[in-house]
Design a protein around this nucleic acid. Structure first.
Length: 393
DNA sequence: AAAAGCAGCAACCGCGGGGTC
DNA sequence: CGACCCCGCGGTTGCTGCTTT
């Protein structure tokens, strides 16, 4: 198999890009589109390999990239999606408008991973490190369910991501490069907008539809295979409810949930997020009841942690306590935050589990509470994500 | 003030999937 | 059907700048 030589070719430059190179690349793509990346460097007069050009463009030069600090909603989105999808940065990036997979990956590795770690949560499995919390039979079942749901959601996201890519490709091919640059996220927007349901990819819609009709399991299997998802290993009986609006809730700027940089106050951020979720759910008057298995999962988790909270109750609890605050409270000692101005990251609510000191996981009860809140937050986001909640239908 | 350590991030590397011939 | 090409993805590296000692 002939692997492309790429940068092994002598004479090709590597390393940091100069402003001149950036300008050349930008000018060329704006005028011609990128076309074949392999052929681009020669045409653009760059002594780089196509791969390097593509990377530079997609991770840095693209005009639709938002740079700078991640908002609290973006952080929540990343954490929640990572809990579902693992290190599938491209799929996660699909639902974080204007953020690149590379940026998200870096942010995860440098900030969020450490933060979860300090909370006593395994950043890989998103499970509390203290396995005693999870040792009950009930949780084993729940964990299995969650895993299955993650697989389904994963398949769905793959389909969406693919469509986004195709959509971008089409737009860049069918119009001038300049026009394409103005609508680089057309696919993403379409998928996120309630008003644009008609452009939803048939494959994605089919999958959701299949989920909505839990009894037609053969259809589910067929549709999933249509997606060619490598991750789905579900048996027919394990079809979980869809969790579409985990993304819709936290990732769609068109629903007004994701705020821009202006909304930087940590506490405020989560509070508003909670409000929006409430409004969102209220608007779904005709929604079918949330699929029982997920509710069971939530209840089981709650029971496992020794609480009698219902989902709604748990949600209120989470909203009140603040997932963000939870993260923040395990932040102290994080150099990156402490040197980023401090004020932003200070928790002014003081109503969370461990507002007393910076150790975060120094106390086992605090760890216990943190873990509980963490998972309740994820589960309750799911609870607002029943199949018919999706504005796509 | 200098050195060491650390964090953040841009960029590279290698693999695998999909398309084409 | 297999070889080849192209591209995208995830993991990793290495540079830069900041903080600490």
């Amino acid at each position: 198999m002939g692997r492309s030589p790429c940068c092994d070719k002598v004479g090709l430059k590597k390393g940091p890009w100069t402003p001149e190179e950036d300008q050349k690349l930008l000018a060329y793509i704006e005028e011609h589109g990128h076309g074949s990346w392999r052929a681009l460097p020669a045409k653009a007069g760059l002594e780089r390999c196509g791969k390097s050009c593509r990377l530079r463009w997609t991770n840095y030069l693209r005009p639709d990239i938002k740079r700078g600090k991640f908002s609290v909603q973006e952080e929540q989105t990343i954490i929640q999606l990572h809990a579902l999808l693992g290190n599938r940065w491209s799929a996660i990036a699909t639902h974080l408008p204007k953020r690149t997979d590379n940026e998200i990956k870096n942010y995860w590795n440098t900030h969020l991973k450490k933060r979860l770690d300090k909370m006593g949560i395994d950043p890989v499995s998103h499970k509390p490190k203290n396995d005693a919390l999870l040792s009950t039979e009930g949780h084993s079942k729940s964990a299995a369910n969650l895993s299955h749901m993650a697989q389904w959601e994963s398949a769905r996201l793959e389909a969406e991501a693919r469509l986004v890519r195709e959509s971008k490709l089409r737009s860049s091919r069918s119009s001038s490069a300049a026009a394409a640059l103005q609508h680089p996220l057309v696919g993403t927007s379409a998928l996120s907008s309630s008003s644009s349901a008609p452009v939803l990819p048939s494959s994605t819609r089919s999958l959701d539809h299949a989920w909505n009709n839990g009894s037609s399991t053969s259809t589910v299997a067929t549709r999933v295979s249509d997606l060619e998802s490598p991750t789905s290993t579900l048996s027919e009986n394990n079809a979980p409810p869809i969790m579409t609006n985990v993304i819709e809730l936290v990732g769609s700027s068109e629903r007004g949930i994701v705020k821009e940089e202006g909304e930087r106050e940590w506490n405020k951020g989560f509070h508003e997020s909670s409000i929006h979720m409430g409004e969102y759910k209220d608007g779904l008057e005709n929604s079918m009841p949330f699929t029982s298995s997920l509710h069971e999962l939530s209840m089981t988790m709650a029971t496992t942690w020794g609480t009698t909270a219902t989902s709604a109750h748990a949600h209120a609890h989470v909203a009140e306590a603040g997932f963000t605050n939870l993260l923040l409270n395990s932040n102290t000692g994080d150099r990156s935050l402490s040197r980023e101005g401090g004020g932003e990251s200070n928790n002014s609510h003081g109503n969370v589990t461990n507002g007393d000191n910076g150790n975060g996981n120094g106390n086992s009860n605090e760890l216990y509470e943190e873990s509980k809140i963490y998972w309740n937050n994820i589960l309750n986001l799911m609870n607002y994500s029943s199949p018919s909640d999706s504005p796509m239908f």
